[in-house]
């Protein structure tokens, strides 16, 4: 049974008109993981079907341990959003509800590589010389 409703599909398709380059979502899952692992896989498969610019790869946290480490993923479900390169965009937990909007936004900005930030902000970020790891805790509603 599809997770996305027709209304959601149409809204996502409209957002995906902004995509300019390929975008890949990598789902890290686990067979014995929570029920949300499978739901995350289904959801991401449905999302990438809405554009020919997106693709999905399903990996296993244990079997694909080297890749998980390379992406800095240590729990599931996790979703990595990659554009021309890995920009460091990660989702932990099923990106549903409020987070779904963020997922679609992440896919668009990863595809275009053009962040919607002020000149001042971009200049300041360009001067960073050490890693900055931002965690944002949210809930679906």
């Amino acid at each position: 049974m599809p997770i996305l409703m027709d209304r959601d599909r149409e809204a996502v398709k409209r957002e995906f008109e902004k995509l300019t380059g390929p975008v890949k979502v990598i789902v890290f899952s686990q067979e014995l993981g929570s029920e949300t692992c499978q739901q995350t896989e289904w959801l991401m498969k449905e999302v990438v079907e809405l554009t020919d610019k997106a693709s999905v790869e399903i990996l296993n946290l244990i079997l694909d341990r080297e890749k998980a480490e390379a992406y800095g993923v240590d729990r599931v479900p996790a979703v990595v959003v990659e554009g021309a390169k890995d920009y460091g965009l990660r989702f932990f937990g099923i990106p549903a509800g409020y987070e779904f909007t963020n997922l679609i936004d992440a896919m668009v900005v990863a595809s275009t590589g053009t962040p919607a930030l002020s000149e001042e902000t971009r200049a300041a970020l360009g001067g960073l010389t050490s890693p900055v790891h931002i965690k944002v805790f949210t809930t679906p509603t």
Partner: peptide, 12 residues
């Protein structure tokens, strides 16, 4: 996306 130094995790 603006900086290679920044990583953003969205956590449920």
């Amino acid at each position: 996306v603006a900086s290679d130094q920044v990583r953003a995790d969205c956590i449920e």
